[in-house]
């Protein structure tokens, strides 16, 4: 026995008013190369805010339009106001709207078409948004 516990799998929160999307994403997650990834699902932004406030979420896939809300410009800031500092990705069947270019101003990290999401893309997202971008000499205790 090594005495080391296994690392906790990354936990993705899917926020989408269409429950079918949860089944589709679950299936796609099974095709991801590498360690297991956990998925939780909520159908609206109110429950998403409650869930992130409880902690433990590593990444959020946020559907662009959640009825009765408007688009991500209304919903993503609510997650930030709840203190969530992990990555938020906007997913939508159509990301061609000009307003998608403003995603960073609303606290969003990336956007992606639903048809672009596959095991391969999810692996990249996990690795990209969990990697250390700063060297050890830039750790916060060097302040």
């Amino acid at each position: 026995m090594t005495g080391q516990s296994a690392p906790t799998p990354p936990l993705i929160l899917l926020v989408d008013d269409d429950p079918t999307e949860q089944l589709i994403l679950k299936r796609k997650l099974q095709s991801v190369d590498g360690p297991k990834i956990d998925l939780e699902y909520v159908p609206d932004i109110g429950q998403a805010v409650e869930r992130v406030s409880a902690g433990g979420i590593d990444l959020i896939f946020l559907d662009n339009r959640l009825i009765p809300n408007n688009d991500f410009r209304e919903t993503a800031p609510l997650l930030r106001q709840a203190g969530f500092v992990g990555p938020i990705g906007i997913i939508s069947s159509d990301i061609s709207g000009a307003y998608f270019r403003e995603f960073r101003e609303f606290g969003v990290d990336f956007r992606m078409g639903k048809d672009e999401i596959d095991g391969n893309a999810i692996s990249f997202i996990i690795s990209e948004y969990t990697r250390d971008q700063l060297s050890e000499t830039c750790a916060e205790d060097f302040l």
């Binding site: 800031p77 930030r80 106001q81 609303f106 606290g107 948004y129």
Partner: peptide, 9 residues
Amino acid sequence: IILGLSEHT
């Protein structure tokens, strides 16, 4: 938190 961004950003 202050700027409404992710820590990654």
